[in-house]
């Protein structure tokens, strides 16, 4: 059993390139069912991916990802045949791969601009929310006085979906951008606050005793004992906050900011430009997954001491 298995594993990477060549061939030689844009560039793109995969196979960099590379190549072939060549589904709502590529080729500037706007808004809002969330969470976890005054406010405002405040925020705050940043901060801040609080409150008091007998002051106890001990929980809060931030971001862009990927998507819908919508959706999903990946990379670094093996 092991011998054919091993051979299969050795040969599989070499099948990835040909799968994409097949997609290129079908795209290029089989006539389109309608007048689609960018058919030849798409074929060239498939060809380029196929060549890159062949090179990766030769360099032995493909082994674990080979099945996915093959499946994607075959998937694009199937999509190409079903929609571009046979036109099985009604056209404006269901696009072809070349429609999508065409959007990127013709509208990349506007898409890129929207992405940068979204990222900028997220970075400021989420950054402030996360920072404040950790600070407030530590305060709640350590100081009864702070807890007395702040806890009721958190309980009142925190559970409110930030989106519910959008209409009000756009009226009260003159700049739509500023209003959105504030709401993003709120979105990121609430989960971060609660989980930081819970993490700090759960710190083993013996950890404080050890440091105190060695002469540690409050500053050390907070920054070098409570914070690192609460870090696993804090990252759960940061992760949840990121999710709520994404949702808030999209709605804020659709309703008020008039820029960013959410706005682009709404604009595309208004013009019934469905391929543009799909393209924006793809960019947005890459942005979100990229940011989550970044957060997990930071987490793996900060929490290297943990034995858990969660892998994003």
């Amino acid at each position: 059993m092991t011998a054919p298995d091993a051979t299969g594993r050795r040969l599989l990477p070499w099948a990835a390139g040909p799968a994409w060549f097949l997609a290129a061939l079908v795209t290029w030689r089989w006539p389109d069912a309608d007048d689609f844009p960018a058919t030849n560039p798409l074929a060239a793109l498939f060809l380029a991916v196929g060549l890159a995969l062949l090179a990766a196979a030769a360099l032995r960099r493909l082994s674990a990802r080979a099945p996915w590379a093959i499946a994607l190549g075959l998937g694009f072939t199937a999509w190409e045949i079903a929609q571009a060549k046979l036109l099985w589904l009604p056209r404006p709502f269901f696009g072809t791969p070349q429609d999508l590529l065409d959007v990127f080729l013709t509208d990349w500037k506007k898409l890129g601009d929207s992405l940068l706007h979204s990222l900028g808004l997220l970075a400021v809002g989420y950054g402030i929310g996360a920072g404040l969330g950790v600070a407030i969470g530590v305060g709640l976890g350590r100081s009864p006085h702070f807890r007395y005054w702040v806890r009721p406010l958190i309980r009142l405002v925190g559970p409110l979906p930030p989106v519910a405040l959008l209409p009000l925020a756009f009226v009260l705050v003159p700049s739509g951008r500023l209003a959105s940043e504030a709401l993003l901060a709120l979105a990121a801040g609430f989960p971060t606050t609660i989980l930081t609080w819970s993490g700090v409150a759960a710190v083993d008091p013996a950890f404080y005793d050890v440091a105190r007998t060695m002469g540690a002051r409050t500053r050390f106890l907070v920054l070098r004992v409570a914070l690192p001990a609460a870090m696993p929980q804090i990252f759960v809060g940061l992760f949840m906050g990121l999710g709520v931030s994404f949702a808030t971001l999209v709605v804020a862009e659709m309703l008020g900011v008039k820029s960013g990927l959410g706005f682009y998507m709404q604009w595309a819908q208004g013009w019934a430009a469905y391929p543009n919508m799909y393209a924006a959706l793809l960019v947005m999903s890459l942005m979100c997954t990229g940011l989550v990946t970044l957060l997990f990379k930071i987490r793996d670094r900060v929490l290297a001491w943990q034995k858990d093996g969660l892998k994003w």
Binding site: D204, A206, F207, D209, V210, R212, T213, M214, G215, V225, P228, A229, W305, Q306
Partner: peptide, 16 residues
């Protein structure tokens, strides 16, 4: 507490 009196606790309580 003060650093002139150092304690080794019954549990190791190392910082993980």
């Amino acid at each position: 507490p003060g650093p002139d009196r150092i304690v080794m606790f019954q549990d190791p309580t190392l910082y993980p």
